[in-house]
Amino acid sequence: MSEHPVSPFDPNPPRRNFYGRRHGKTLRQSQKGYLSEDLGDLRPRGITIAENPERRQIDPATIFGDDRPVWLEVGFGGGEHMVHMAARYRQIGIIGCEPFINGVAMLLGKIRAAGVSNVSVHPGDARDLMDVLPDASVERAFLMYPDPWPKARHHRRRFVTPEHLLPLARIMRPGGEFRVASDIPDYIRQTREEVPLAGFALVADTAEPWEDWISTRYEQKALREGRAPHYVTFRRL
């Protein structure tokens, strides 16, 4: 990965390495249908360099049609948490980022089932989205059970590093909330160390979930395997 955050106005940003999976098991026919029929209308426009060669910023109001509060979920997995939040808080707009296409297909099926319309889906790297969102445009961000990258030499690939946290801090509104959930003690350790350095204050650090939490399949797997979930909340300074 690059050691320096990419400017949202840089027309020739450095090439980024991507280490996660983009494809998994063969998609079911219904999931292929979700991708072909639903994804196009839910994608925020102007994210890729090909679509936006000058890296101009996008206005979240054009995504949701008004100036409602915008939330961001980084790596939504199967989409349980994102759809739950969209259904519970209909007055907000939530953008989800996920490069794993199987997870995107799962999310689209949940969106159909829940009938929520206050969602937008970026099927790619969250860094590309953060590049083009305006300063102080996101009120709440979620990092729910991110890829742990357990080997020490891979810790720089984690989201809780300056390459990701500094762009996140730029797009977060002062006072905005950043939530992190993980069952990996060393990930929580790195989160506690790195996030405050990017301009956030620690608000809560607990084994008890948030009041509006919904347990995801990743959390259920952690509990089955004897790992204790942990929930950390930060506030943008």
Rank of each mutant, 00 (worst) to 15 (best):
residue 1 M to A: 05
residue 3 E to C: 08
residue 4 H to V: 11
residue 5 P to I: 02
residue 6 V to C: 08
residue 9 F to I: 11
residue 11 P to E: 07
residue 13 P to R: 04
residue 18 F to P: 11
residue 18 F to D: 03
residue 21 R to T: 12
residue 22 R to Q: 08
residue 25 K to Q: 07
residue 27 L to N: 01
residue 29 Q to S: 14
residue 32 K to M: 14
residue 32 K to T: 12
residue 34 Y to W: 14
residue 35 L to F: 06
residue 36 S to Q: 10
residue 37 E to W: 07
residue 39 L to N: 05
residue 42 L to A: 07
residue 43 R to C: 12
residue 44 P to T: 06
residue 46 G to Q: 14
residue 47 I to L: 09
residue 48 T to N: 06
residue 49 I to Y: 06
residue 52 N to I: 05
residue 53 P to A: 13
residue 55 R to A: 08
residue 56 R to E: 01
residue 60 P to M: 07
residue 64 F to A: 13
residue 71 W to C: 10
residue 75 G to R: 04
residue 76 F to C: 12
residue 76 F to M: 12
residue 78 G to T: 10
residue 84 H to W: 12
residue 87 A to K: 14
residue 89 Y to D: 12
residue 90 R to E: 15
residue 91 Q to S: 14
residue 94 I to N: 01
residue 99 P to Y: 04
residue 102 N to P: 01
residue 103 G to E: 07
residue 105 A to S: 13
residue 106 M to W: 02
residue 109 G to L: 06
residue 114 A to T: 11
residue 116 V to W: 06
residue 119 V to N: 09
residue 127 R to C: 00
residue 130 M to N: 00
residue 130 M to P: 04
residue 131 D to S: 12
residue 133 L to R: 03
residue 141 A to D: 03
residue 142 F to G: 08
residue 146 P to I: 10
residue 149 W to F: 01
residue 152 A to D: 12
residue 152 A to G: 11
residue 155 H to A: 12
residue 170 R to L: 05
residue 172 M to E: 08
residue 175 G to F: 07
residue 175 G to S: 10
residue 176 G to V: 08
residue 183 D to C: 08
residue 185 P to K: 03
residue 185 P to F: 03
residue 185 P to S: 08
residue 187 Y to C: 06
residue 188 I to C: 05
residue 189 R to T: 15
residue 192 R to E: 01
residue 194 E to M: 08
residue 194 E to Q: 10
residue 198 A to Q: 02
residue 199 G to H: 00
residue 203 V to K: 01
residue 205 D to T: 00
residue 207 A to C: 10
residue 209 P to D: 10
residue 211 E to N: 09
residue 218 Y to H: 09
residue 218 Y to N: 02
residue 218 Y to L: 06
residue 219 E to Y: 05
residue 219 E to P: 07
residue 223 L to N: 06
residue 226 G to E: 01
residue 230 H to Y: 00
residue 232 V to W: 00
residue 235 R to L: 01
residue 237 L to S: 15
